[in-house]
């Protein structure tokens, strides 16, 4: 387990943890815009099938007392949500026809 950051059942997602365990949406959005589609596709292909397992695993813990590894997994799922629209809908990092628009999420629940 040394060097790993996710719960044991999710070691298959470890290669993506360093880049995508991001607590805040603003940083996740920035990471998305700074990523290529092949990068996001690879993360999506690995993580999307694990979403139901991740939700079931995380629901065993009180949301506000998640152990560190579970918290990392939650942040990884948030990032999967963030890349899902580029992969499934837009086929590019930016929202199609969003022009110069940029919304800054400055307040959100923790975790």
């Amino acid at each position: 387990m040394s060097g790993t950051v996710l719960p044991q059942a999710f070691t298959d997602l470890e290669p993506f943890a360093a880049k995508w365990c991001i607590p805040a949406e603003a940083a996740r959005y920035a990471a998305r815009l700074a990523s290529t589609m092949p990068e996001m596709q690879a993360f999506y292909d690995a993580a999307f099938p694990r979403v139901p397992d991740a939700m079931a695993h995380l629901d065993q813990f009180p949301l506000h007392e998640l152990p560190e590894r579970e918290l990392n997994l939650l942040h990884l799922v948030y990032s999967l949500v963030m890349v899902s629209l580029p992969v499934e809908v837009w086929h590019q990092p930016r929202v199609i026809d969003s022009g110069t628009a940029y919304f800054d999420r400055y307040l959100e629940p923790v975790p």
């Binding site: 939700m55 995380l58 629901d59 009180p62 949301l63 998640l66 939650l74 799922v77 629940p109």
Partner: peptide, 8 residues
């Protein structure tokens, strides 16, 4: 949210 699934 009362659990992680709701938050997600």
């Amino acid at each position: 949210a009362r659990n992680a699934s709701e938050r997600i």
